[in-house]
Amino acid sequence: MSLVIENLTAQIPDRQILNGLNLTINPGEVHAIMGPNGSGKSTLSKVLSGHSDYEVTAGTVTLDGQNILDLEVDARARTGLFLAFQYPHEIPGVSNANFLRAALKARLPEGEDIDAVAFYKQLYTRMDQLEMDRSFTGRSVNEGFSGGEKKRNEILQLMMLEPKYAILDETDSGLDIDALKVVARGVNAMRSESRGFLLITHYQRLLDYIQPDIVHVLMDGQIVLTGGKDLALKLEEKGYDWVKDEVLATA
């Protein structure tokens, strides 16, 4: 039972972006993927969640044994895959609360509805953990939110939907240190033996607050180096050029 990515190769019309990527995330583990700009980090998150801009040309992805590459975006999400977006979309006129209810309802058998009282109890608990004002329940999803508020809202959704595997795409970008701490607290609260995380980040900073079990370096659409959390510190210190040299040396 794990999220297994094997030989994943994907492209946009004129460019291959993922080149045979291999990665296995077991429940309970927190993986971090770091890499320079253009290495394919964000592409990985989009390909895994099924964005139609990308074409998978080779490889497999299984979620707890189920091949998800044949599934639509929504079906992948319902099997337990969650993506916290780098740039969360605004949904004018749709309140946060209604959006979350709709998302939760989509996971129930047809005709069933969620218990409104239990829902709000859970929602308020989670919002308190993220230090979000109650007024956010009635506001349109992400509309007029600051960068930090949007990121908090992503984590709120993660907390409400309780996925088996969560990908966080540059969740730290655009956050000041206080907001980063709050977001990290939310993520840490969701860490559990039954849930796997993939943190995609450019900077080591995030990893001070969400400590990863395993750190990978992504370059040219492949994982070129894997290590413990000290690898992130080394990257911070020495930069990605060091990895290039290292990889070339071992090649």
Binding site: D74, F99, A106
Partner: peptide, 14 residues
């Protein structure tokens, strides 16, 4: 926008 909503589990029609 549709991708965002579908990633949260809603069908395309929803």
């Amino acid at each position: 926008q549709i991708f965002y909503l579908m990633q949260r589990g809603l069908t395309e029609a929803e």
